[in-house]
């Protein structure tokens, strides 16, 4: 509703369907010659249902955002005042502001730390799931599903209560049973570092289940014979995991890690809610919340969103290219 035009770099291009009926050309050349137009059109027609929502849902906002970023476009323009073209002014304003660079650096650091932690924890738990008995595995799976399935705002409210400085359970446990009197009334959100630590706990907690399920599914595909052969050759269980199982599911790991990087770079809800819970707003902005804070001036918010899109692309291009190479190989 009110969210700024988000650069949605996540959607992959529509899959290219290879034209069907290549085999039938030799069998019925006559028929094909009679209706060449139609058979050539069919694949493209089949693409339409995929392309239209993409164009409307992704292309249009992206183009609008891009156009805005070269204009002066605020509330007055929304009410009909003509928008002026200002060239690169918006970009110059933003990129010459050291604060913006701070936000970018913070966001990248936050994204990398969170993605790394999520991957490490997720893989560890997935391996754990292959090792434990049925009962324990189902318990783990249900717990994960609940963490994954609960709406973000509901979980955020609970986390906020846990870390509330006055009535929060965390402070209560630390000050009461654990006897750390200094923790009574401790504010977890007021220092940026401690704020990001809390945010990291929450973000990682929310994204781990996805990694666990995907990696677990991948690990189940590793052929039993290979593992057994390695075991007979004397490979320790650590060596089997590190040297055999993980390399075999590398494509899965790549895709999951890529998604984590993208998701953690554009994190918004968790940070926004925590800021409203009492953090110093300006010192805790990440890219998502910073763009939102600019959203009254569509033009400058559009420019910032475009910058963010570029950052996302830079962070992920090398990755995607490597992934594609491996698929071809």
């Amino acid at each position: 509703m009110s969210a700024p035009p988000a650069p949605a770099a996540t959607a992959p291009p529509p899959p290219r369907t290879s034209p069907p009926a290549t085999g039938s050309t030799s069998a019925a050349p006559l028929r094909r010659r009679r209706r060449p137009l139609r058979s050539r059109l069919v694949p493209y027609l089949l693409l339409v249902p995929a392309l239209v929502p993409l164009g409307v849902g992704l292309g249009y906002p992206l183009v609008r955002q891009f156009v805005f970023s070269f204009q002066e476009y605020g509330l007055a323009q929304q009410f009909g005042r003509p928008a002026e073209w200002v060239g690169l002014d918006n970009y110059v304003t933003l990129l010459s502001d050291p604060y913006v660079w701070g936000v970018i650096a913070r966001s990248i650091a936050f994204c990398l730390v969170n993605a790394a932690l999520t991957m490490a924890l997720g893989i560890a738990l997935a391996v754990l799931m292959t090792k434990v008995g049925r009962g324990a595995r189902i318990t783990l799976q249900v717990g994960m599903l609940l963490a994954w399935g609960t709406p973000v705002l509901a979980t955020m409210t609970v986390w906020q209560w846990l870390f509330d400085s006055q009535y929060g359970v965390v402070n209560w446990v630390l000050a009461g049973p654990l006897g750390m009197e200094g923790q009574r009334g401790h504010s977890w959100l007021i220092e940026p570092l401690s704020f990001y630590a809390v945010a990291t706990v929450i973000v990682v907690w929310m994204s781990v289940p996805f990694v666990v399920f995907t990696v677990y599914a991948g690990l189940l595909q590793v052929p039993e014979e290979c593992m057994e052969a390695a075991q007979l050759d004397g490979a320790s269980s650590w060596q089997r995991l590190w040297g055999l199982a993980l390399p075999m599911i590398k494509p899965v790991l790549f895709v999951v890690a890529l998604l984590q990087v993208i998701w953690d770079l554009r994190v918004f809800t968790q940070i926004h809610v925590l800021q409203r819970a009492g953090a110093p707003t300006r010192e805790t902005h990440l890219l998502g919340t910073y763009i939102y804070s600019l959203s009254k001036e569509f033009s400058i918010a559009g420019a910032m969103a475009t910058i963010m899109l570029v950052i996302t692309l830079v962070l992920t291009t090398a990755y995607i290219r490597r992934m594609l190479r491996e698929e071809e190989a």
Binding site: I190, Q275, G278, P280, T281, R282, E283, S293, K296
Partner: peptide
């Protein structure tokens, strides 16, 4: 002025003074 409130500049200021 609504932008000043939107950016929570005064909240941040008083919080710093409180700290």
């Amino acid at each position: 002025w609504a932008d000043v409130e939107g950016a929570r500049i005064l909240e941040d200021l008083f919080q710093e003074i409180a700290s």
